[in-house]
Design a protein around this nucleic acid. Sequence first.
DNA 1: TTACCGTATAACAATATTGTCAAATTATGG
DNA 2: CCATAATTTGACAATATTGTTATACGGTAA
Lengths: 202, 202
Amino acid sequence: MVLSTETEQKIVTSAEKLFYQKGKAGTSMQDIADDAGINRTLLNYYFRSKDQLFEAVFRKAMGRFVPGLASVMQSDMRFSAYLPHMVETIIDTMIEHPQIPIFVLQELSSNPNRMPQIMREMGIDPRVGFSKFEEEQVSGIFGRMDVRQFFINVLSLCIFPFAARSVITELLYNGDGEAYIDAMKQRKKLLPALIMNSLTEK
Amino acid sequence: MVLSTETEQKIVTSAEKLFYQKGKAGTSMQDIADDAGINRTLLNYYFRSKDQLFEAVFRKAMGRFVPGLASVMQSDMRFSAYLPHMVETIIDTMIEHPQIPIFVLQELSSNPNRMPQIMREMGIDPRVGFSKFEEEQVSGIFGRMDVRQFFINVLSLCIFPFAARSVITELLYNGDGEAYIDAMKQRKKLLPALIMNSLTEK
DNA sequence: TTACCGTATAACAATATTGTCAAATTATGG
DNA sequence: CCATAATTTGACAATATTGTTATACGGTAA
């Protein structure tokens, strides 16, 4: 087993790249093999079928940004203190893997029935996470803001700009990808203040 | 030409449904024909090829929420006054066609090069739209907030919750689709206040 | 009725895609 | 070195998909 790990790596790397870009149905096994520079049969050798290869890629993608969400829910810190770190973690992840949001959302949208099982596998229990927030709400930090709405806002502000990367770059930054990235980095400092500010009664 | 319009309608309706759900590559012409209850050859009869059928669907989808964005840019109203109407328009569109965001974003992400051409076709010129905002910024309404960041925030808060529908429903509303929709409706009143509030210096 | 035109269908050809299998090649332990 | 196991390859079968073409159907107007 000298090169096995290596080729398996190459397969996953190419599969990620292409699945992210073109989706599951839009990517053929041959495409992946070509990109990896190996024989197509090897894909079946290491990953039984296309379904299983996709499954591996999808779970890896989920695993890349689910922990960020899970950690904040299970953290002992008060939410307000954890917020800046959370925002920074999410945005950094998005900058590193900008195609993941659409990839994951598209798959979950096509197969919504997968959600419950995946959440179980990822060890996420909404109830646990929320009891924590609800305590803080009682303590007055959230004011009148509904905790769920608040959570939706945070995720929206952090993730959407990456799902809409091409649109935003073209529409707001005249196609300048550098300027777009800079703007995303700025958001790491911009958002926490804005979010906390949104909790204040007008 | 007695039934031609009717079958053509059926084709587009089924194509929209399936393309939205499974994407272009994930949907076969046969799938669409079956869903429409017609012979597959008719798809080629009315729309030369799969590419052209998809193109028709995609443009129709773009047309459904681009006007909302364009109108605010070209409106004579001051932005602050227009905001509530804009938010309501976008969210209502999303509620009616919840799958469009992912569908459009996925396609634009796969083919970013299409953006410039599409923007031209839709008659959107970023520069024109922004001169307007920049005036208002000078007049002090936006405070220190960068207009582009502000715009990103508005779109994120309005659109993302629909792109992430399945996740949010499962994660925050225990799979209760009704509760999810109610929450989205609430956002129509919630967001304008929150957005304006975010402009205030802390 | 008949000739005609738009519409609909069935059959076909060409190509793509997936998964399997046997054979070849390479690495590894004795 | 040799035997064995892991890895890689080429060839194959089965199926799916797309687009075309020739034909059939149905309404309409002369």
